[in-house]
Amino acid sequence: MELEITKKRSGITTIIGLLSFLVALVALASLNIGLLLDSDEFPDFFLVRLPMIGLALGVVGLFTKKNSRLYAFWGIGLCLFILLFTFMMFGLAWMINPKP
């Protein structure tokens, strides 16, 4: 009985970090697709909302005691990168060849 509870706990806590990492990877993959397709209209969902979710999951994953927090770190890192990327690209694209 007790054994089961412990197993379950460790499962959930690992999964939050892993989930954050996976969400970040999905967002990153879609960012790649967007960049390689060279399309101007790319859904915000992948560039803003999904990384936000990943970030939140990663932060939760950080505060779980058991298991390695490696996934959570990666999840947070990647999500922050995507958000920063989106933000910077807006600014930079506006700076290059500006048109009113």
Partner: peptide, 20 residues
């Protein structure tokens, strides 16, 4: 190290880990 940091927030977990 991790244990020291989260000792307060994870008291519940602690109890579950007592030797069976």
């Amino acid at each position: 190290r991790k244990q020291k940091r989260v000792v307060v927030s994870e008291k519940v977990g602690e109890e579950l880990q007592i030797t069976s």
